[in-house]
């Protein structure tokens, strides 16, 4: 049961759920959280391949993905805060123009 197919199926399901979250929700905070979930699904695929092939390259790349995810979350939240200061509400429909 703990074969690589099973973990990859879990990873695919979680990734699809994250995609649906990005597409359906209008709150940019929830969209960012969905993106984090998608990155986590990718990490799960990396780790299952790493365990399957007996190497640790996959885990190294998981660390790099985690770094990029943290950077993305920080910058995205800063953009959301700046947007909220500017317009008093947060909705992705407002962000059709990114000028200050």
């Amino acid at each position: 049961m703990t074969s690589i197919t099973f973990t990859l199926v879990i990873s695919a399901i979680v990734f699809a759920v994250g995609t649906v979250g990005v597409l359906l929700r209008r709150n940019p905070l929830v969209q960012f959280m969905s993106i984090e979930l998608m990155l986590n699904a990718v990490n799960l695929a990396f780790i299952s391949f790493s365990g399957r092939f007996g190497t640790s390259e996959g885990q190294v790349f998981v660390l790099l993905v985690l770094t990029v995810a943290a950077a993305e979350a920080v910058v995205g939240l800063a953009i959301i805060v700046a947007m909220f200061r500017h317009r008093r509400r947060i909705d992705v429909d407002d962000i059709h123009a990114m000028q200050g």
């Binding site: 990490n43 780790i47 365990g51 885990q59 998981v62 660390l63 985690l66 939240l77």
Partner: peptide
Amino acid sequence: ILLGAEFIAAIQVLVYSGAILVLF
């Protein structure tokens, strides 16, 4: 952890649920 990546699991708990989600 069950896949044998204990360090990544610890980092996951520390960074994701400890830092990023608290930031959110």
